[in-house]
Amino acid sequence: METLIIIVAGILVTVAVYLLLSKNVIRVILGTAVLTHAVHLLIMAMGGFKGDSVPIVSQKETSFVDALPQALILTSIVISFAVTAFFLVLAYQTYKYTKTDDLSEMRGVDHE
């Protein structure tokens, strides 16, 4: 299963990079969101999927799945949410001022 998840993550990375390279603000932000998804899958796959039960200690002795990747991803989900929210507001304000959502038109003038 690890191999499958890695391939899925690889395809998501391709999608994300393609979106990041486009000119539209929203597509770029979507690119970052997709990239986050890909990374989450990667971290999960790196930890492996062995173990029988959820990582909660209980009476009966079993083997747990790897808890460390889960902790890392939990942090990542929250941070990526904050970043996405910030990007969206930035895009909104930029649009309000520049009247465009095309990044190639937003290029600043040389200050001299």
Partner: peptide, 17 residues
């Protein structure tokens, strides 16, 4: 560019695994 990044990413991840 996107495809090559995806490919390198996948190859590295598979090797690590």
């Amino acid at each position: 560019i996107a495809a090559s990044v995806g490919l390198v990413f996948t190859l590295v991840a598979l090797s690590v695994k």
